[in-house]
């Protein structure tokens, strides 16, 4: 009897030990704040991350098996949708907003241009069930996954449960997206003291600190707040941003501040992709600001940048490009598991 109990006890200890070993620590760069994502509720393991990655690249998530998350969020563009001002979904539908770049999502407290989504886990539901994005229903996605030859095994490895649920599907997608950390740009090397800015970049950094950092705050290059940066309303889209959610008029024309990291690759810019190049963005901030009652405070006073200053600011912005992020093999199409 005693021996049996001992066996059971050892078994439990072993199980616990294995579970601990499976957890992958989430590494936070020293100069980053603490992440907001609660990893206690969704522990990272390599099995879960792999599952999330496969889901992210699988067309099965859409109604007619043509669109995956990666259709609009491509790893070579820091997970933005390059060349598409407005996102391009199922049956060639055109959406109403530009697909944002995805990175450093563990630090992001709120999602979508208007903050419609409050938690990374719930984000995937929006495109899956949007009639012009993936046109599916999560219950149907789960039943397709359950019938597939590969997923029950992958879910078992990740969650010790081959019965697939909406919760586990969403948590696996989060696990993968949480690993999308970009912190190896030239800027990061300078902050860590391994490299130095050249003269142009240094001047650009000073200009950035002067004019841009109140909203695009270091080290994430966004404060994740909702601001009106003086864009004219596009009357064909009539997108009032944050006001759509809060229904408060003082939130009119406010959008979530996007990060400037990897900005070189995430064109076109702004919530509707109206600007194709960074030069047009700089021209907007220096002379193109449209006044409206909700215009954010830091932009009330006109910014005037000379041609040289624009060049310098641009060269600083290019130090935020993280090629290791773009070419990270762990983020790309999981060829070893999925066929196209």
């Amino acid at each position: 009897m005693k021996v049996k109990l001992l066996y059971i006890f050892c078994g439990i200890v072993l199980l616990v030990a294995f579970k601990m070993a499976d957890d992958i620590p989430f590494v936070v760069p020293k100069y980053f704040p603490a992440p907001v994502y609660d990893f206690k509720k969704n522990r990272l393991s390599s099995e879960k991350i792999v599952l999330g990655r496969v889901l992210f690249y699988d067309n099965l998530l859409s109604k007619n098996q043509t669109i995956s998350c990666a259709s609009c969020h491509s790893n070579y563009n820091a997970f933005a949708h390059t060349d598409h001002a407005l996102s391009h979904g199922i049956y060639d539908s055109i959406g109403t907003r530009n697909a944002p770049a995805l990175m450093n999502l563990a630090w992001q407290p709120i999602f979508m241009w208007d903050g419609a989504i409050n938690h990374l886990d719930m984000q995937a539901l929006a495109p899956i069930q949007n009639k012009i994005e993936m046109g599916e229903h999560i219950a149907n996605v789960v039943s397709k996954l359950q019938k597939s030859p590969i997923y029950p095994k992958l879910f078992y490895k990740a969650f010790e449960d081959s019965i697939i649920s909406g919760e586990h599907t969403l948590k696996a997608l989060s696990a993968f997206m949480l690993t999308l950390v970009s912190c190896e740009s030239k800027y990061d090397s300078v902050i860590k003291g391994y490299l130095a800015f050249d003269a142009k970049e240094k001047n650009g950094y000073a200009l950035y600190k002067n004019h841009c950092s109140s909203c695009h705050t270091e080290p994430l290059f966004t404060n994740y707040r909702f601001e009106n940066n003086g864009l004219a309303l596009d009357t064909t889209l009539s997108d009032y941003g944050r006001m759509h959610i809060t229904k408060q008029t003082n939130d009119s024309l406010k959008f979530k501040v996007p990060t400037l990291r990897n900005i070189e690759w995430t064109y076109p810019y702004m919530h509707d992709g109206r600007f194709k190049t960074l030069n047009t963005v700089l021209n907007h901030y220096s002379g193109g600001i449209i006044y409206s009652p909700s215009l954010s405070e830091p932009l009330q006073k006109p910014i005037s940048l000379s041609a040289k200053e624009k060049v310098d600011l641009l060269s600083f912005l290019l130090t935020l490009s993280d090629t290791k992020y773009i070419f990270n093999k762990n983020h790309s199409f999981p060829r070893e598991i999925l066929k196209n």
Partner: peptide, 24 residues
Amino acid sequence: TNSAGALGGALDPTVGMYWTWQNG
């Protein structure tokens, strides 16, 4: 609970009681 991320059982999004184009 509305802000707690993905949950299971009666709260699993597959039961059709979660808004998707916004949260809650």
